[in-house]
Design a protein around this nucleic acid. Structure first.
Lengths: 248, 248
DNA sequence: CGGAGAATTGATATGTCTCAACACTTGTGG
DNA sequence: CCACAAGTGTTGAGACATATCAATTCTCCG
C-alpha cells in the first residue's frame, strides 16, 4: 500500500523502464492477509517483509502455460487475465483477476502452471512460495492453513465463472458478466455502478464463449434498454435490479 | 439416512438393506493416499483406521448447496455428479466424479458447500475432516500438505472441465467429453475403449451446455462416422485417434 | 401388461457465427 | 499539426448450428 513519488511516475506515466523492471520490494504477512480478506488465525510475525513483489506491465506475461511452478501470485494492484492455449494455437480466457486474487493455484499439485497469465494493465503481484522450506519455517503459525484456504477460494471462484458462462443466451451471459464485475468492484470499495473494463470485447467473448460481435451487440442492446450506458470500455449501470432480473 | 426395506428393493434389487445403511467402516490414510494417487511425504501412521466412510445410494444426495461444510469427501467407489441450482430452480451440472475424486473443495473457505452433490450410482465415500482439531492432530505428518495438494488438484480438474465445455461446436464438446471419460477410465485401470456412462443425456447436456437432443444427435453422428459405437449408455470407442482428431 | 422415464429422430424457429464495411481511438513519424 | 497505420468497437446481411416442439421407440420396473 506504499508507493513513493518517483515510482508512481515510473509506473503510470511509463518513463524509466529500467527502474520499473529492476524494482524490488517486499510485502508483509499482514498485507497479504488483508488483500486476501482472510480472517483466520495467523502468526505474530505479521510485519516482517518476507514476500517478494514483482511488477508486470500491461501485455506482459506473469507465467506461461506449462512453465515450472514457482509459487502462487497475489495481485496487489492491476488487472490480469488467465487463459489456456489450445493445441491449434487458439487462446481461451479462463478468468479476469483483480486486486486480492490469487493466480497459479492449479500449479501446486502439478508442479507446473496449467494456464497462461498476462497483465491487462500494469500490475504488481506478491509471490507466495509454496515449497517445503517455506512450510518448515511456518509449520505452526497458521500460514499453511491460509494457503489451502486461498486455494479453496479459487475453486469457489471457478465455480462462479462456470455458472456465468453457462447461461442459455448470450445477452444473459453478458449481463451476468457485468454483475460479476460490478460486485467485485464493490468488494474492493469502488463504485458498483460505474467502472472501466480493462479487457477487450474479444477477451470478454472468449471468457463467455461467444464472439466479440455478439458481446458488442449484447452491450448495445442493454444500452438501448436503458439498463446500462456503454461507451467503449466505460460502463455505467443504471439499474442493477433490472440487470439482475434480466435472467429470464 | 435411514431407509426401510421396500425402498431398498427399489434400489438395488437384492440384499441386506439395513446393513447397507447402518454399515460404518473406517479407512486408513494409506487407502486415502492410494485413492488420491498422492506421492508426497506422509506420516508413519498409515494403517490406523481414522477416516469415516459413508454410503450414498443412487439418486440420493451427499450434500446440498448451501449446507454447512463438514469436510471433503473422497469417492471410494461409485459415480456422482455435482451441480448448482439456480434461483429459478434450474440445475446445472458442474462435474461428474468417480473413484479417487474429491468433493466439496469449495467449502473449505466458505464454511458451506457451494454446490449440490448426488450419486448417479451407489457410492461409498470417505470423509476427510478439515477442521482445527484435525490439523492439531496432524501438524507435522504431511497430512495438511496432502489436503491442499488435493484442493489444488480440484482447481486443475475444473480448468479441464472449463476447456471441454468451451469448444465451438456441440459435436466437438461431446467428443471431448468422451475422451475425458475414456482417459479417466484408463487412469483407474479400466478399458479406455469400452465403458458405460452412468449419467443421462440430459446430465451430459447440462454439463456441456447443450440440450439433450443435441447430445443424442452428436452421439448418433459419431456413431454413423464409425468412430464410436453407441447403444444407450454403452460406449465403444473404435478409434480414439479419430475422436481426438475431431477437434477441427 | 402398463406406465414412466430415457433416448432417438424429424421439422421448424431462433440465436449466434461469419463475413464485411465502417467509425473511432491511439501511437508513430513526417 | 497532420497523415497514417494498427488495433478496437459497432453495425448489418446472410449462412449455419442449435434450440424447440413433437412423435415415436426403447428400456426398466412394478
Amino acid at each position: 500500500m506504499f508507493v513513493n513519488n518517483s515510482q508512481a511516475q515510473v509506473f503510470h506515466a511509463n518513463s524509466e523502464v529500467r527502474e520499473f523492471d529492476l524494482h524490488c520490494e517486499w510485502s508483509t504477512l499482514n498485507e497479504v492477509v488483508q488483500l486476501l480478506q482472510y480472517h483466520g488465525p495467523c502468526s505474530a510475525e505479521m510485519h516482517k517483509p518476507i514476500f517478494r513483489r514483482r511488477r508486470v506491465r500491461a501485455g506482459q506475461t506473469l507465467f506461461l502455460m506449462g512453465q515450472a511452478f514457482s509459487g502462487l501470485y497475489l495481485i496487489r494492484h492491476g488487472n490480469m487475465k488467465t487463459a489456456i492455449t489450445h493445441a491449434e494455437g487458439s487462446e481461451h480466457v479462463m478468468s479476469f483477476s483483480m486486486q486480492g486474487d490469487v493466480l497459479g493455484a492449479e500449479g501446486v499439485c502439478q508442479q507446473h502452471y496449467g494456464c497462461q497469465c498476462s497483465a491487462l494493465l500494469d500490475c504488481e503481484v506478491i509471490r507466495l512460495p509454496v515449497d517445503d522450506s517455506f512450510f518448515n519455517d511456518h509449520s505452526d503459525d497458521g500460514v499453511g492453513r491460509l494457503l489451502y484456504w486461498t486455494i479453496s477460494r479459487e475453486v469457489s471462484r471457478q465455480q462462479l465463472a462456470y455458472a456465468i458462462t453457462h447461461a442459455a443466451k448470450s445477452e444473459i451471459r453478458v449481463a451476468r458478466f457485468l454483475i460479476e464485475q460490478s460486485e467485485r468492484h464493490a468488494t474492493l470499495g469502488h463504485s458498483a455502478k460505474r467502472f472501466t473494463l480493462p479487457m477487450t470485447r474479444r477477451d470478454i467473448g472468449s471468457y463467455l464463449n461467444v464472439t466479440l460481435e455478439t458481446v458488442s451487440r449484447a452491450l448495445s442492446s442493454l444500452n438501448q434498454l436503458q439498463i446500462i450506458d456503454v461507451a467503449n470500455r466505460e460502463i455505467v449501470i443504471h439499474s442493477l435490479d433490472q440487470l439482475q432480473a434480466y435472467e429470464g
